[in-house]
Each structure stands twice: as structure tokens, then as C-alpha cells.
Design a protein around this nucleic acid. Structure first.
Lengths: 169, 169
DNA sequence: ACCAAGTGCTTCGGATTCGAAGCAACTGCG
DNA sequence: CGCAGTTGCTTCGAATCCGAAGCACTTGGT
């Protein structure tokens, strides 16, 4: 583990800018999704993931993996989306425990309804002030960071407050 | 408003990597803050903002502005932090309506307790896979984006979709 | 000084989230 | 086959969040 050396101003700037940028972007996107289709960001991610699939369906677990999300939260949103008729849930054929989530026509319609505005927000807020080489660089750097994070050990190895002399507290 | 042209793969990659990176980073940071000091990310931001102030105190409104956050959410967290003795709330001298939030010694202690681990997480997860020139580039690009976003109009110009009479509202 | 409008914060109701516990179906081993 | 452990999803309880409404104080016009 890295020793906790203080961060220099550039590192701090990168960190803060990352946090604030994504926060502002997320707020703006959520606003648009709410206005255009009464969707939360998570709901949009779920529909978009389904739309991305060839037959418009996925297992619950695969969905949860695609969106970094808890199982219970996914169940909740799946219920909500099902009530609105945007998806259906059916037991998997080969495994009775599994649930296959499928995008309905209404779901596709909402997605199509919302997508242009979504792209517009991303374009206007994130991409507008960047040159294409900026975008390329940004994508490269953040992709490396993401891959690194994914490989990172689970937080169970996180530094405890106290020196662990035993099993902890 | 920009016309909704589809994004190319690099633009998509930058967008997705930004969202996922910040999401993963946030999760990791929250985990650490929880383990080290039972703080949520927002609570940490509030304490850190106060700690940043010369006398360790701020008005509620100024705090809410510093952290992108709703007033009611701030009230909720201020109550929580006050119950734990990490801050105090006192009416402002010059304006009875205003509330001055002040960091206590206990609050400073928790902050000091949590800080090293916080830096370690940021270092290990975000900075580790980057060269110093990467960090510099990242900071530069994201700072420009952030400044652009801050200048952006508050999203009232978004195409409103008519509210149909809800099915269960 | 008085009243209306404005400002700062809190309260309230509802939505969303997570982790833990629960339930049902599957798998491996004898 | 039958049992124990695992896996996939849901339910439950608690925490967190937001917007709207409410309350208390301040300000401006008369």
C-alpha cells in the first residue's frame, strides 16, 4: 500500500476536478432524463444496457454487473420499470432461479425519446470545451484508470484506523 | 443547443470512462471514510470545507454552495454531525436567521484521523496508474471542463416534455 | 412603525439506496 | 435419492437524499 504522502497541487486539482466534473455532469444528465422521460439515471442505464443487447434481454445479475449497483437496488428499479411497462421479467428457461429482463416496445420508445437529449447534454457540457485530441487523451487516461481500479483488490484490504495487532477491534 | 449528432467511439469512451471512474473512486473513498471515521462522503466534504476555513466556521448557505448539495440535505447532515459532536451550530450574530457552523476539536480529530487513509485511497486508485504528466494533462482538461460547466446555464433551456397525467401520481 | 416581500434554515413526505436476512432452485457428493 | 452448501433474486429495515411547504427574521416602501 502506498504511504499517505500529501498530494501536490496538480494531483489535488485532478482529483477535485474529476469529482466535481462528474458530479455536475451527472446532475445535468439526470435533469434531462427526468424532463424527457421521467427516468432516473440508473433507470436509463438499465434500459440502455438492455437496448444494447441483441435481443433486448439480460439476466438480472449481468445487468447488475454492467451498472455498478447492488442487487437489491436493481430489484427495486426493475419493479418500478416493470410497473411502467418498460420491461418485463420472466423466469429463465434453464434456471428457475434466474430472471430474464426484457425491454418492451414501450421501453424502446422511451429510450429513443430520451437519447437525443442525452447526447446533447453530454456534448454541450462535457465535449464542447474539448478538442478532439483532448477527448482522445481524456479517454485514454481515464480508461487506464478504470482498468486499474477494476483490478484493484476489494476494499476488505483497506487500511484500518488502528494498527492491527490482532483481528482488529 | 447542439444538434444531437451521435457520438463517435472515442467520445463515448471518454464519457463512459469518466462516469465509471468517478463512480468507482467514490465507492472506494466512501468505504474508507466509513471504516476510518464512520463518515459519509458528504459529511467528509463538509468537515473538510470547515477545516479549510481559517476559523473553522461557515454559514450554512456558504457550505451548501461549496458542496453541490441541497439545503435540506445539508440541514440533515448538520444535525447528524452535531449529534456526534463534530460541529456546533449557533445563530449568526448579525442575522438571527443565519446559522454558523463550526468545527469542534472532536471534528478536527476525526478529520485528522481520516485524512491519511483518504489520500492513500486517492493515490492508490486514481493516481497510481498515471505518470506525472498524465496527472497534469488530466487536471488541465478536467479543469477546463469544470469551468465550462460552471458557466453553463442552469439547464432551464432543456426541451421540456409535456407532463402527461401520471398513472399513479 | 407597519406590512409585504425576500431570505435562511428546518420540517415533511416520498423516492432511492444499501446490506443483511430470507427464500427458492441448483449442484456436488455420498 | 438425499443432504449440505451455493447461487440468484427478493424482502426488510435503516439511512440518505431532494423538493415543496413552513417558520422566523430582515428589508424596503410608505
Amino acid at each position: 500500500m502506498t504511504s499517505p504522502r500529501p498530494l501536490d497541487s496538480t494531483q489535488l486539482a485532478a482529483y477535485f476536478a474529476l469529482v466535481e466534473t462528474s458530479s455536475l455532469l451527472r446532475h445535468a444528465v439526470e435533469q434531462q432524463l427526468q424532463d424527457a422521460g421521467r427516468l432516473s439515471y440508473v433507470q436509463f442505464q438499465l434500459l440502455a444496457t438492455l437496448g444494447d443487447s441483441a435481443d433486448g434481454s439480460r439476466r438480472m445479475t449481468d445487468l447488475a454487473d454492467g451498472v455498478v449497483y447492488s442487487r437489491s437496488g436493481l430489484t427495486y428499479q426493475a419493479q418500478t420499470l416493470e410497473k411502467r411497462g418498460l420491461i418485463t421479467r420472466t423466469p429463465a428457461a434453464d434456471d428457475e432461479r434466474g430472471v430474464i429482463v426484457t425491454l418492451t416496445e414501450a421501453g424502446r420508445a422511451v429510450l429513443a425519446d430520451v437519447f437525443p437529449g442525452h447526447i446533447a447534454v453530454v456534448t454541450d457540457m462535457l465535449l464542447a470545451p474539448l478538442s478532439s485530441s483532448d477527448v482522445e487523451t481524456l479517454a485514454d487516461i481515464l480508461t487506464r484508470v478504470r482498468d486499474h481500479m477494476r483490478r484493484s483488490p476489494p476494499r476488505s484490504a483497506a487500511p484500518r484506523r488502528r494498527r492491527s495487532k490482532g483481528t482488529g477491534e
